[in-house]
Nucleic acid binder design. Sequence first.
DNA 1: AACCGGCGCTTGATTGGTCAAGCAAATATG
DNA 2: CATATTTGCTTGACCAATCAAGCGCCGGTT
Lengths: 157, 157
Amino acid sequence: MPNPSAASPQPLTPDEESLVRALGQVMHVLPRAIDADMVGDRQLPLTEYTALMNLSETPDRRMRMNELAALCHLSLSGMTRTIIRLETQGLVRRERCEEDARGWNAVLTDAGYARLQESWPSHLAAVRRRFLQHFEGFDLTQLARAFQRAGTAEPTD
Amino acid sequence: MPNPSAASPQPLTPDEESLVRALGQVMHVLPRAIDADMVGDRQLPLTEYTALMNLSETPDRRMRMNELAALCHLSLSGMTRTIIRLETQGLVRRERCEEDARGWNAVLTDAGYARLQESWPSHLAAVRRRFLQHFEGFDLTQLARAFQRAGTAEPTD
DNA sequence: AACCGGCGCTTGATTGGTCAAGCAAATATG
DNA sequence: CATATTTGCTTGACCAATCAAGCGCCGGTT
């Protein structure tokens, strides 16, 4: 029997219920709000910002598509398309990978780095204001751990 | 000066950093995982499930598009399209609103109700397993409140 | 009672993502 | 060493969401 709880399991407690609902709302509202804050301010949608940010954190500002996609929580093809968008804006350049001619490196250009420098204060402010601010007084270490667990999807068994 | 913190504000603490990253991952992974669990089990994507669920919670299983869209965190046009999808599956019917001939009611059909009944145990199990389980020992009331605050987007000032 | 601005909803165009198929380089196999 | 399989990435087709424009009805004005 594939689904052991098919009958009618315990419903959620009111607390659980409202937590789940609130999470749903956050997942919907937050990225849009942060996006809006940044776009209004420095014209960089969240996905593209994340890509630039991850690139900037490597020693030589370059990364294979594979790895970058994983860090950005994007499919490989989604990543390709994001990088193309960034490339046409001159914020990223693509170079064939030396030790494996199938591979590509996305390389952060100086323009890209400059743009990131411009954007991150407003990104940071948005994250604080929209999210972190509401968790003052919480044990962030604990909380982060819980989210990491939840974010690590086990396969659908 | 529109952006007062343009220079180089305090970066995030490591805890804040990892919380933010973990939330990003959760926002990406969780809906897909829950979707996968449910689709694998009872063929109802999360958006459609949410619509049916909200309808089922009204006294007469019907709701104006407006209100339903808000509860589903969907734009009005997104809601229209979702309802159309559900309608073609026979899970929802649309009726002109009596007291205002511009309006429509989405009405949960018996088939829709039945389908919801079938789905919700696996939805519930997914939510528990993928999310709630990782927050045992937390003060859920507090947590829910914090998320509610974060989910209430103030306009971009 | 004829108009007209606003409202409720749908529709068209676009966007940003997914999955599946394709292609070229790399690697394993007979 | 030739061929088959696998790998890394791109491309094509699609999909679900968005925004902006459109359509018909409402309700207040004159």
